[in-house]
Amino acid sequence: MSGYVFAAGALSLLLAAGAMVAAVVAIAWGDLGLSVPSPVVQAVFVLWAITLVGAAAVFIRIALNRLTVRRALRRQGPKGMILITADTVREMAGILLREELGLHRFRVHIRPMGEGLALQITLRLPPGEEVPALAERLQSLLAQEVSAKTGLEVPEVRMVVEGAARPSRSR
């Protein structure tokens, strides 16, 4: 559903940008019967249109990502379809990371891969942890548990370390 909302948002932004460009061109050619705005105003309009097109591109990318992830999370069985939403997979991965690995500061990103899902965990390295050991535990835990609990294949689990968490001060 949200994928369609984002697609609608992208379309409306593109239309707005198109209308703005057309209006600037028409004013410049004198078709609208208005005086030609100064180059500064024209530049502002062009920048505005570029911003709208950029925003529309972001919306389109998010919409496409959501729709493809949603498709990857859907399985047709003999009795009907089973869809596990991306939020559910994210929540499940979050619970596993908190409860099994004691992680607290992380983001879970999901993208479709082949017949299954690829997970990317972006985190800050907890104090005392070593990257190779944590990566191995994290990858095997998520690949096995998410696959076992959802029935979806998890061919890739990527861990991205974006910094180190500071040790908490004990008094």
Binding site: K79, L83, T88
Partner: peptide, 11 residues
Amino acid sequence: VDEVDVEVVRV
């Protein structure tokens, strides 16, 4: 009943 579609939205 032809189909029972299930959408799991949260844990």
